[in-house]
Amino acid sequence: MAKKIEIIIGGSGGQGVVLAGQILGRALAYEGKNVLQTQSYGAEARGSLARSEVIISDDKIGFPAVRKCDILVAMNHEALNAYLNQLKDDGILIIDETNVRETPKTKVKVYKIPITETCRKMFGEATYANMMMLGALTKITKLVSSKTMEKAIREVVPTKTLNANLKAFEKGQELI
């Protein structure tokens, strides 16, 4: 079987997990990977669970949805509870420590990062937590170069907030 890496990024609507997935997917595509990204929201757009999936493969990607993931990014407690059972036993778990009450007992490799807290300190708001998380994810997984990620960020985020987004992305890498 061809090598395939499946990622779930979960959080609440408004945390920017969908945008994060899109940027990650775009960067991977630019590096010539076969990549697929999907998203789903809960019943309401804001506040409820939002989930973005990214699949990377050496081969053509078949089934366009993630059932078991290799990497789970949980931006809050609810997402962690909802998706942890979909993480493979040899997977990687990345947690935004600020929004997670307790870390579950698990065999997987866990990265606890105070993303939202750091973001609030830097910018006075949590708006750029998704970019900071992408920075951490890029450093941990080395799936894609930070340069390509920056290119994707430049293309996707509004010009007005580009600098803040890039700073958050850089800070995310430093947190690891």
Binding site: Q22, G25, R26, V35, L36, Q39
Partner: peptide, 9 residues
Amino acid sequence: EIIAHLREQ
């Protein structure tokens, strides 16, 4: 809806 909404290269 699946093909229309998913993103791929």
